[in-house]
């Protein structure tokens, strides 16, 4: 009975409080999609790029979501689509969080003119509707998945910089930070070990919510013709192809459902996280 005060181990190890109901389903959906993206080349039902059946068949037992105008299996292509969308969204979010963290931390902790300059830059970037700026940058760099990715990072990181800066400023006024400064702990160490752990939660929660939005933006850029180009099985590009075969509704339906599922899953998970950690959005 010596450790009555410490919280029961079981509570801490068990399922987190937010991981219930729809959020749990969301996590499962995301896990399944990640698994598909990683392993689909091993068990892919058909070749995603080759015509394997008569053209424009409706959904049937052999082709769960029909075939497109080149006789390719739509279901297979939808599965392969996750291999573009998920890694791209992952890279965009992770890079944005890293850049945003560095900029936000430096701006918030140092303050002064560095803060002023960095935050003015953030303000200006955030003054644009994300898709328009991403479109302009991608078009300037030249269409393609890689350039779309660069454009999305450029558009996305300011959100996290602003979020983290606000947190850092709040935490930096705590007494324990002051005492650390008083005993001469190095500034970088204070920032890394004393401030950031207290400040990063809102960034992580928002990053989860944004994951879905980046999947959407990736598909949108491809739909417009600035991201992945049509032969490749990417969800947005597939919908573009489906739009040209308007009366064969299944071609566009499959990738659209895939996007909807993934984004909805991330939204539910992000929502639950936000409620649980009581984090405000960047609105």
């Amino acid at each position: 009975m010596t450790d009555v005060i410490s919280p029961p181990r079981r509570l801490r190890r068990g399922r987190p409080e937010w991981l219930r109901g729809p959020a749990l389903i969301g996590v499962v959906v995301i896990a399944v999609w990640v698994l598909v993206a990683l392993t689909v080349p091993l068990w892919s039902p058909y070749d995603p790029l080759a015509g394997v059946a008569p053209r424009l068949q409706g959904p049937n037992w052999h082709h769960l979501m029909g075939t497109d105008q080149l006789g390719r299996d739509v279901f297979t292509r939808m599965l392969w689509g996750s291999r573009t969308s998920l890694p791209v969204a992952f890279v965009v979010i992770v890079s944005s969080v890293i850049i945003g963290t560095v900029v936000g931390a430096v701006a918030g902790y140092r303050g002064g003119w560095i803060d002023a300059v960095l935050m003015r830059f953030v303000d200006i970037t955030m003054a644009f509707p994300p898709i328009l700026l991403a479109m302009a940058i991608t078009a300037s760099l030249g269409p393609g998945v890689r350039n779309a990715l660069i454009a999305m990072v450029l558009v996305w990181w300011p959100i996290y910089a602003r979020l983290l800066r606000a947190q850092v400023i709040a935490v930096k006024q705590r007494e324990y930070v002051e005492s650390a400064e008083a005993i001469g702990v190095k500034r970088f160490t204070i920032l890394r070990r004393y401030i950031l752990p207290m400040a990063y939660t809102p960034v992580l929660v928002n990053a989860t919510m944004d994951f879905g939005q980046v999947v959407l933006l990736t598909a949108s850029l491809s739909f417009i013709g600035l991201g992945a180009r049509p032969p490749s099985p990417e969800w947005g590009a597939m919908i573009t192809e489906g739009a040209t075969q308007f009366y064969s509704w299944w071609i566009a339906t499959a990738p659209g459902l895939a996007i909807l599922l993934v984004v909805l899953a991330f939204n539910y998970v992000g929502d639950a996280l936000r409620d649980s950690f009581d984090v405000k959005g960047v609105v």
Partner: peptide
């Protein structure tokens, strides 16, 4: 939530 997860171009089609 569907509203903020729906790809507008797909919903339109």
């Amino acid at each position: 939530l569907i509203g903020s997860s729906l790809p507008a171009f797909w919903a339109g089609l």
